[in-house]
Computed example of a mutant assay.
Amino acid sequence: MERLSPAQRLQIILLYYENQRSAKSVFRALRATYGLHNRPTERTIRYTVEKFETQFSLLDNTRPNRPHTARSAENIAAVAESVRDDHNESIRRRSQQLGLSYATTWRILRKDLGLKAYKIQLIQELKTADLPNRHRFSLWALEQLEEDPMFSTKILFSDEAHFWLNGYVNKQNCRIWDEEQPEELQELPLHPDKTTVWCGLWAGGIIGPYFFKNEAGRNVTVNGARYRAMLTDYLLPEIE
C-alpha cells in the first residue's frame, strides 16, 4: 500500500493502546477501514509504534536533497539516445555499453524517461488465403444474426491440452550447488504417459473438463473416431 499519512499513523497508535498493545489486534481492527487486502501489515504497525515511542513523531524523517550525480543530464541523454537506437536492448547490456550501473540505468529509464518494459504479444499468423475466408465467415455470421438474434449464444469455443503425468524438470531452472559434479540424472521414458483434456465454453457456461480414456480407464490418444464419440456421447447431452 502507499505511504501512511500522519492521520493514519495516529489511528494505528490509538488502536494499539486501546487493544492492550497488541499489533495483531490492531491488524484485525484495521480491516473495517482498509478492507481485507489493503490494510497495513503487522510489521508496519510495529514499526509505526516503535518510531512513535522512540522519536515521539508521526512524520517521515527528512532526507537531505542530495543531487543525483549518477542520473545527470548527460547520462539521461545518453540513455535516451540508446533507447532511440535500439529499444529492444536489455537493461543489463545497455548499462554495460553506457558504463552505468544496472540500478542507475533502471532509474533513468523508469523515473527520468518515464518508460516501461512491455512484453511482445504473440498472435496467430494469417496467410494471404485466410483473409477472404475470414471475410466470408463474417458475412455468414451476420446473416445468421439477422435470422436468429440468439445465434451468438449458440457458439461454442473449445480447445484441448496435453498433460504429461511423469513430471518435468526444466534444466535451465534447476541448479545443484556442490563442490563436485554430482552426476545427478533423471530417467525419462521413451513414451511418457500423458492425458488429453477437452473443455468447452459457451453462453451456458463451461463444459468439461473431459478426459479422453478408454473403457478400462486408461489414457488414450485422440483420433477422429474418439473425438466424434466425445461430441455425440458427452457434448450433445451436456448442451441439450
Rank of each mutant, 00 (worst) to 15 (best):
T62V: 12
T62E: 15
R63M: 09
R63W: 07
R63A: 10
N65D: 13
N65G: 10
N65L: 10
R66C: 10
R66D: 10
H68I: 06
A70R: 15
R71Y: 04
R71F: 03
S72K: 10
S72F: 08
E74M: 10
E74I: 14
I76R: 05
I76Y: 02
I76P: 02
A77F: 03
V79L: 05
V79S: 03
V79N: 03
A80V: 00
A80I: 00
A80T: 00
E81I: 04
S82C: 12
V83R: 03
V83M: 07
V83F: 06
R84D: 13
D85P: 00
D85G: 00
D85Y: 01
E89T: 12
E89K: 15
S90T: 15
S90D: 00
S90H: 06
R93K: 15
R93F: 04
R94K: 13
R94G: 01
S95E: 00
Q96Y: 05
Q96W: 04
Q97V: 12
G99P: 05
G99T: 07
L100E: 02
L100G: 02
L100R: 01
S101W: 04
S101A: 07
Y102R: 06
A103F: 06
T104G: 05
T105Y: 02
T105H: 01
W106K: 08
R107H: 11
R107Q: 12
R107F: 05
I108N: 02
L109V: 02
L109H: 02
R110F: 08
R110K: 15
K111G: 01
K111E: 14
D112K: 04
D112P: 01
D112T: 03
L113D: 03
G114K: 05
L115T: 02
L115E: 02
L115D: 01
A117E: 08
Y118A: 11
Y118R: 14
Q121P: 02
L122K: 12
I123L: 12
Q124N: 11
E125W: 06
L126C: 08
K127T: 11
K127N: 11
K127D: 08
T128Q: 12
T128S: 10
A129K: 09
L131D: 03
L131A: 06
